[in-house]
Simulated assay, not measured.
Amino acid sequence: MMARTSPPAVLSAPSTTGLIDAHGRTIRYLRISVTDRCDLRCRYCMAEAMTFLPRSALASLEEIALIAERFIARGVTKIRLSGGEPLVRRDVGELVARLGGHVGAGLDELTMTTNGTRLRAHAPALAAAGIQRLNVSLDSLKPDRFRFITRHGDLLQVLDGIDAAREAGLGVKINAVALKGLNEDELGDMLAWCVDEGHDLSLIETMPLGAIDEDRVDRFLPLTGVFETLAARFPLVRDSHRTGGPARYWRVEGSTTRLGLISPLTANFCDGCNRVRLTTEGKLYMCLGHDDQVDLKGVLRDRGVTALDDAIDLAIAAKPAAHDFRIGIGEGPAVTRHMSVTGG
């Protein structure tokens, strides 16, 4: 069983050595992909015929928990669970409950990114386990367009899941990838809907990760122009709000809604990066746009939990100054792995 009321001292005792990379950035944020699988096939994220990792290659939920707890002991204060779609992994609720037990005891916040398809069934348990906020991926409010982008998704199912999350007391932020010629005409309407519903909205530029069936150049929409269009329709005021992620925020005056812009291509955000990512294979990637990684699952299996600190230190020391995302004709993906492997 994963549940544990009193973790061994080696996991729970704080370390006097924090996680500071070679560029002076303190690492306080761990993103964890609990599975590379998903029940949707969004066109900008995955190929239609995906080959997923064999289950034998995955880290167990117990191993993920042990690694995450070592990061908490080293000063990480925020963890986000993601995928793929994290709620497709069986018994993921046990991992959520175990990590949720650290909220207020080293961990400031435990969050999850989800596509919303399974929230009706899972939202109450997520709230009870210690999650207070969800990021829900939603790229269109038009049913036919939503189905086209996701290849087979049901918009009403996702909207019902968002309602379930709100009923459970969970905060919801909507994540939408801005896609040229696909959803750019409704981004203003999505922000208006978020204002009406009381959600925050983050818009994201498409990222060149993994091979897909379409050319990302055709869909790349710079957020600089999107912001200008939105600012002409909404009273946007710069907001100092930070969630630990890369978004820059504005508030829609007269509402509780914040608009976040995540611009990896037009506005590099690497100078303040405080994040590392643990894959479902138990590999730690120090940057979304680089292939350098340290196999923490291998260290844990071969040498035990006490060896994790040295491996984590090795990884943090190798964190690069910046990614090198480029998008253009003839440019392939920045890395071959898909976003679902590394975690969003």
Rank of each mutant, 00 (worst) to 15 (best):
T5A: 07
T5H: 12
P7I: 06
P8G: 14
V10D: 01
L11P: 03
S12R: 10
A13F: 14
P14H: 07
P14L: 09
T17E: 14
T17F: 12
G18D: 11
L19D: 04
L19Q: 03
L19E: 04
I20F: 09
R31T: 00
D36A: 07
R37S: 00
L40C: 03
C42E: 12
A49K: 11
T51A: 15
L53E: 13
P54N: 09
E63N: 01
A65F: 04
I67M: 11
I67W: 05
I67E: 08
A73H: 04
R74C: 07
K78N: 08
G83Q: 08
E85V: 00
L87H: 07
R90V: 01
D91H: 01
V92G: 00
A97S: 09
G106T: 05
E109C: 01
L110R: 05
R118G: 04
A121Q: 14
P124F: 08
Q132V: 02
L138W: 11
L138Q: 05
L141S: 06
F146S: 05
F148K: 08
R151G: 03
R151S: 10
L159S: 01
I162E: 01
A164G: 03
A165E: 15
G169I: 05
G169Y: 07
G171S: 09
K173E: 08
A176K: 02
A178H: 05
L179M: 14
A192Q: 11
W193G: 01
D196K: 02
M207K: 00
M207L: 10
L209E: 12
A211S: 09
D218R: 15
F220H: 13
T224E: 12
T224A: 13
V226S: 13
F227C: 05
A232R: 10
R233D: 06
P235N: 02
R238Q: 10
S240D: 09
G244I: 04
G244D: 13
Y249R: 00
R258E: 02
G260L: 11
T266E: 15
A267D: 15
N268C: 11
D271R: 06
L278G: 03
L278H: 11
T280Q: 12
T280H: 14
E281N: 06
G282D: 15
D292Q: 07
K297Y: 09
L300Q: 03
R301K: 14
D309C: 05
D310S: 07
A311G: 03
A315R: 04
A315K: 10
I316V: 12
A322M: 12
D324P: 00
R326G: 04
I327D: 03
G328M: 14
T336R: 07
T342N: 10
